[in-house]
Computed example of a mutant assay.
Amino acid sequence: MKNTMSNTVTALIEIVEREAWLDLAVAAPADYVKSSKVSYTRLGAIVGIADLGVPITEFNRIFGLGIEKAVNEEELDQAISWMNEHATPTYALQVSPNALPETKLTEWIIARGFKNVGNGLAKFYRCSRLVEDHAIPTTLDVRLVEPHNAEEFGRVAQAGFGLPPTVIPYLSAIVGRPNWKAYIAYDGDIPVAAGAMYMDNNWAWLGIDATLPDYRGRGAQSALIKQRLLSGIKAGVIGFTAETGQPPEGQESTNKSYNNYHRAGFTKAYVRQNYKLEG
């Protein structure tokens, strides 16, 4: 998909997400780092994160290729070398449409044995305009997570994503951390859904959106999105971003996560592709 956003807005979208994931890795508890082999690196504008204990793309990928400046082949090789040493073999190099140098970057990546896999990630953008009431009301109660309830946040996110229980301390570590706000949606006193927001330089990334299977379709994520928008605007955020898997062409209307962000006033800015090693 051709990027209809300016290079500047694309860069801001990519940067705030990059910094959120880097900070999540930095915050990982020492015991989790040791047991799951969490590692991270910053190579100029490029950031790599790795987690051998959770062998999925979200926890093993490269951010920022060609975003703040054009990448050269030496820098690309350095990033790939680091990932080969630290990450699970299923790691991804993520490339936005405006990554520089245009055309050459993807050619270099493919020449090194990578191929474009899947439909990519739909990256969403929203400015700080008025937040409207959602079309799907909910009886669930959204609350800011305090440090004494951090594990509750991690447990809901882990269960909602279907990740191993060992990841709970990792996801819990953002609660109470500077730049982060974490929320839980409750059914009475039962925590049923989670969502987080990372804010930096008046931009915010919304992520870690997870709902327990029995509570899906009850408006939890819509309520969590609304609360984060209101909180972010109050804190001075001028631009919000989030992402979800890009559905197959023509099937966007059937994807709940995709629709949740559209209904909340987000626009799909572009699709970011995943490049993985063949075989």
Rank of each mutant, 00 (worst) to 15 (best):
Y258V: 10
P178R: 10
A242N: 08
N202S: 11
Y215G: 01
A223Q: 04
A210H: 03
A204S: 07
D209G: 02
L206G: 07
A194H: 02
G176K: 08
E249L: 15
P169V: 11
G239S: 13
I174F: 08
A242D: 13
I174L: 14
A193Q: 00
I184P: 02
N202W: 10
S231A: 15
D187A: 12
D209K: 00
R216L: 04
I168A: 01
Y215P: 11
D187K: 02
G207I: 10
G217I: 10
N255Q: 10
G239M: 14
Y258H: 02
K181N: 15
S257T: 09
Q251P: 05
V192E: 04
G265R: 09
V192Q: 01
A196Q: 12
A196L: 12
Y261N: 08
Q251T: 13
Y183V: 09
A173S: 13
P169K: 08
T254F: 06
D187M: 07
L224E: 00
R218A: 03
T267A: 11
W203D: 11
D214M: 14
S172P: 07
G250N: 08
A173T: 02
G188R: 00
A210W: 06
T211S: 15
A182H: 06
S253K: 13
P248V: 12
G217W: 03
N259S: 13
Y215E: 00
I233S: 04
I174C: 14
G265H: 11
L212Y: 00
A264I: 09
A194T: 13
A173G: 05
N260G: 04
S172Q: 09
G239E: 11
V167C: 07
M199T: 15
S231K: 04
L229P: 13
H262Y: 07
S231R: 10
Y186A: 01
I238Q: 14
W180Y: 15
S172W: 06
N260Y: 12
S172M: 12
A173I: 06
I174M: 12
S253V: 06
G219Q: 08
P213W: 05
F240K: 09
W203K: 14
M199H: 09
V192L: 08
S222L: 13
A194I: 10
Y170P: 02
A204W: 12
A182W: 03
Y198S: 09
S172A: 15
N259R: 02
L229H: 12
W180V: 08
A204G: 13
E243W: 03
K181H: 15
Y186V: 04
P248F: 05
S172F: 10
D187W: 08
S222Q: 14
N260V: 04
I208Y: 11
I208N: 07
T241I: 11
K234A: 10
R218E: 03
P248A: 09
L224M: 03
Y258D: 02
E243L: 05
S222P: 07
T241Q: 11
N259K: 02
Q251F: 04
P247V: 02
T267D: 06
K226T: 12
P191D: 02
V175L: 13
G232E: 08
A196E: 09
W180T: 06
I225R: 00
L212C: 01
D200H: 14
A220V: 01
F240L: 12
G236Y: 10
G188F: 08
F266G: 07
V237L: 11
W203I: 08
G239V: 12
T267C: 05
